[in-house]
Design a protein around this nucleic acid. Sequence first.
RNA 1: GGUCCCAUCGUCUAGUGGUUAGGACGCUGGCCUCUCACGCCGGAAACCGGGGUUCAAGCCCCCGUGGGACUACCA
Length: 471
Amino acid sequence: MKMTNKKIRTRFAPSPTGFLHIGGARTALFNWLYTRRHGGTFILRIEDTDQVRSTEESTRAILDAMAWLGLNWDEGPYFQAERVNIHREEVRKLIETGNAYYCTCTPEELDSKRKRALAEGRKPKYDGTCRDRGLAGCSESVVRFRGPEVGTTVVSDLIKGNISFNNEELDDLIIERADGYPTYNFAVVVDDAQMGITHVIRGDDHVNNTPKQIQIYEALGYDVPLFGHVPMILGADKARLSKRHGATSVMAYREMGYLPEALVNYLVRLGWSHGDQEIFTMEELIREFSLEAVGKSPAVFNPEKLLWLNQHYIKSYPEERLIEAFLPFWEQRGFDVSDRRFIAKAISDLRTRAKTLLEMAEAGMFYFQEEVPYDPEAAAKFLTEEYRGHLEAVAERLPGLAEFTKDGLEAFLRALAEERGTKLKWIAQALRVALTGKTVSPGIDEVMVTLGKERVIGRIRRATAQIRAAG
RNA sequence: GGUCCCAUCGUCUAGUGGUUAGGACGCUGGCCUCUCACGCCGGAAACCGGGGUUCAAGCCCCCGUGGGACUACCA
């Protein structure tokens, strides 16, 4: 494989017909990592030649998702639709050199021929009706590429190795539609060539297009870039990942409380590996990423492992960044998050026991609810006469407690338990329900410290009052 | 149907002719413990099948089988 010394140029070229999905994000990530690894230039190009399905909103969404993942681009975004004049000119060139021809077969004719061919067990490829008719263009005509009828075309793939195709299997594909717009297989070639793309890294759903594209490169006199086709991402049923398999939009993961590092880390390991290492920083990825280490087989998307990684990043994130990423989840619930110290403490209580920021936000709602709702089962078990004495004792002694710290409180509660002839766990559980409304929460001493003496006493009083009222 | 790709625990993967086939998620037993987690220590769990090549095959070749992609005036 000839590796020229020229600077690497890659591109990510999504079509703006929806959100950035998991598969696209991984393709973008692989391109980005490869480019950063080799000090190249990463280009973003929006393939919006489908005038009907493309929307500006989708473009916006894709850009936002890229930014969230930290995948910055060096050039672009370029918009393919703005380049139609260039595409048309290249089409003219092919017609002049005899490498393309006008075709007036109607979509209906083509469709019925295709169906018939399929029904009779023949190849459903274009039958070449107009190939040698020497037609001139008209308002109904399309332009087809005149492909070689014999020989083979080989794709040298950086991931899959050499793949060869018999040219007779390849279709004379349409490169310009009747409306004058180029089709995908033509526009990519022209754009990639003119943008000086050296490495085309994309999903392997494109392998079958590649020989045709190579022929177009050659007919146009361009250098053929290197290709790297990455395997698809599959759902649990081994079918190509789609909405049926749950969330596939990158931004949906943000809303569900995932950290971008977790998604990046998960995605990069889907198809790529570096020995036994599972956790990678961006710096490590840039240093270690290589296409040689990308596997050839498709990978099943496993939400459980993503969750594990997310949990890992929630635990290990720098505090300030965690707060920044997390706060919106409380803000959108209308909680007052202006007390930075309180917030920071609450988050440090919660972060070791959440798999997502969303989960964390829900688990920590009690910090803001003065009249915390009691879980019925929890209350039935612990907000009872049996525990009232313990709770009252805590409320009575607390004002005089000098060491209102994690250690001080633990010592206090242990001593109290002994004094009252019970175990810490019973006092802790009753307190937990009084303070948080639930039987599950961060450590009770941590909760007390975070809440502060006043609020703790208030909540205990409210709980004991309720027990009395009920009793 | 045709063309092309792929094939190690349930899943993501390491492995590049000689390994007790390793790691991770998940599952699971235990420890820790104020609940839930975290953490720590253990366990079960894989080379798709059949032929070759070779002293020796998860690794190389062939054939099956299975899965996937493409087969548009979508990208």
